[in-house]
Amino acid sequence: MSETPEQRRERLRLEEKKGNPIGNLSDATNSASSGSLVELVNGLGWKGTGILILVAIVGFILFSVFIR
């Protein structure tokens, strides 16, 4: 059975976390309090990430136009 790239990344991330728990302590603390950009992008996929970037750009343009 072939795993998807997302499943492979998650499996490798978990294996690394098991292999080096002390080294990941600060990473775990930081991502627990604010969330991780990697987890957000993995959850959204490439289409969702593209839409998020597009919304941010359009929002910035509209903000700059109405502030003038």
Rank of each mutant, 00 (worst) to 15 (best):
G43E: 12
N42L: 09
G23H: 01
A28S: 13
K18G: 04
N20H: 08
P21T: 02
G35Y: 05
G19V: 04
E39M: 08
L37Y: 11
E16H: 08
R11M: 01
E15N: 02
S33Y: 08
G23F: 02
E6A: 07
S31V: 15
K18T: 03
R13M: 10
E15T: 05
V41D: 13
G45V: 01
E10I: 10
I22Q: 11
E16P: 00
G19L: 11
T4P: 02
L12F: 02
A28N: 13
P5I: 07
R13P: 00
I22T: 09
L44K: 08
P21L: 00
L40S: 12
E6V: 06
V38W: 08
K17L: 12
G19N: 09
S33F: 13
Q7V: 03
W46A: 10
A28W: 03
S36N: 13
L40I: 14
S36F: 10
G19W: 04
G45T: 04
R8I: 13
E39N: 09
G43V: 02
S36D: 15
S31Y: 13
V41N: 14
A32M: 12
S26W: 05
R8M: 04
R9M: 10
E10D: 07
R9L: 09
S34F: 14
N30Q: 15
T4K: 01
